[in-house]
């Protein structure tokens, strides 16, 4: 029994004081004196944010689907789409569930082949959705949603999926009721051998050595049109040895193929674009959610005052110029960084 256990009858204040000044290792010190120190209650609280499926760790609070819609449009829709149905940046969150599924707790669509899978089709624990949104959303500013916003966004997603009504207010008190309505709450099984090292395999082969039963017939191979889908395989193999890579992308006539081409070093501006999450939604050449940087440059590079216009757009956000999906505001970015980013974009984003 450790000394901390023997202290457990001491008054709470004394115990806390003992914990706080225990960095010399006076408490619960095992075999390794001087290594580590007790965590303070505030430290434990700061990091112990996980919510388990029995709702251990779920903070008290609530949020309405209506409020969730506001948060969604401002912070989530640019990647996930207005109705959480977008498949542009991430797989869709909402869709594929029915009233019948809510009744059964099994999403019937999952048994059909060729059906895509949305988050709500897979979701078997409501705590998971709450915990994940709270812990790591939005994509470029994780841990920035309040408890209320997290309840609200979770409620809004559930409302979009018609699991709760549009005026629903989700709270720690009714999470269990929502759990009982999740369309795929009964959709998992642990009857398999892949949890423990000693688990029983579900698929069995035998080590036949001679004249084994096989047709040795090719059932599947890459179609010819996909030959260059992974670039030139010749440039992905060593230049000596028993093999070479097959040439899957023809070099232009007369042009000597390079031995190996390293990617050019990223410019400081590109690194800044990456750091600020710009490249999550904008490709250099192509549209991802928003337009590609080169498309932006092509449209604006000769227009008067375009630098100021683009800088304002990055700062304040906007919508409608390139399509319906809004560009979120970036109030946290420094003006000088924004200006240098705009110059980089208009200069061809190299």
């Amino acid at each position: 029994m450790s000394r901390s256990a023997s202290l457990s009858h001491a008054p709470a204040a004394l115990l806390l004081a003992a914990l706080l000044c225990a960095s010399a290792g006076a408490v619960a010190q095992g075999k390794y004196p001087g290594i580590g120190r007790p965590a303070t209650p505030a430290e434990v609280k700061a990091w112990d944010t996980d919510v388990r499926s029995d709702f251990t760790g779920l903070p008290k609070g609530s949020g309405s689907a209506k409020k969730g819609e506001e948060v969604w449009d401002a912070k989530c829709a640019s990647c996930h789409g207005t109705f959480a149905e977008s498949n542009e940046v991430f797989p869709p969150i909402v869709g594929g569930t029915t009233a019948e599924d809510i009744k059964n707790g099994r999403v019937a669509g999952l048994a059909k082949s060729n059906e895509g899978r949305t988050t709500l089709m897979k979701l078997s624990r409501i705590s998971t959705l709450w915990d994940y949104i709270h812990r790591s959303m939005p994509w470029t500013a994780p841990r920035s949603l309040s408890v209320e916003e997290t309840y609200a966004v979770t409620a809004y997603i559930l409302a979009l999926g018609r699991i709760v009504p549009e005026d629903f207010v989700l709270s720690d008190a009714n999470m269990a009721e929502v759990q009982a309505r999740l369309p795929n709450r009964n959709g998992t099984t642990t009857a398999h051998g892949l949890w423990t090292v000693k688990g029983r395999p579900d698929v069995k082969n035998t080590a036949c050595m001679k004249d084994c039963p096989t047709e040795a017939k090719v059932m599947s191979q890459l179609p010819a049109h996909a030959r260059d889908a992974h670039g030139n395989i010749a440039e992905q193999n060593r230049v000596v040895g028993p093999v070479r890579g097959a040439v899957t992308v023809r070099a232009a006539a007369g042009a000597a193929a390079p031995v190996a081409t390293a990617a050019p070093a990223a410019s400081a501006d590109r690194i800044m674009a990456e750091k600020n999450g710009c490249l999550a939604c904008h490709g250099v050449d192509n549209k991802i959610v928003g337009p590609g940087f080169k498309e932006i440059a092509a449209r604006y590079k000769d227009a008067g005052g375009s630098e100021a216009k683009l800088a304002a757009k990055i700062k304040a956000g906007g919508a409608g110029t390139w399509g319906a999906i809004p560009m979120p505001p970036h109030p946290g970015m420094k003006d000088e960084d924004i200006n240098s980013l705009v110059k980089w974009i208009l200069g061809g984003a190299r």
């Binding site: 251990t56 078997s124 915990d131 994940y132 642990t190 090292v197």
Partner: peptide, 27 residues
């Protein structure tokens, strides 16, 4: 208890032909 985090409920689950997901597959 199992925590049932995102990587245990929404991802890293194995969809079977009957529409059930095998959960806690890891070996």
């Amino acid at each position: 208890k199992h925590w049932d985090t995102r990587e245990e409920v929404l991802h890293y689950i194995d969809l079977m032909p009957d529409g059930l997901h095998r959960q806690y597959t890891q070996i």
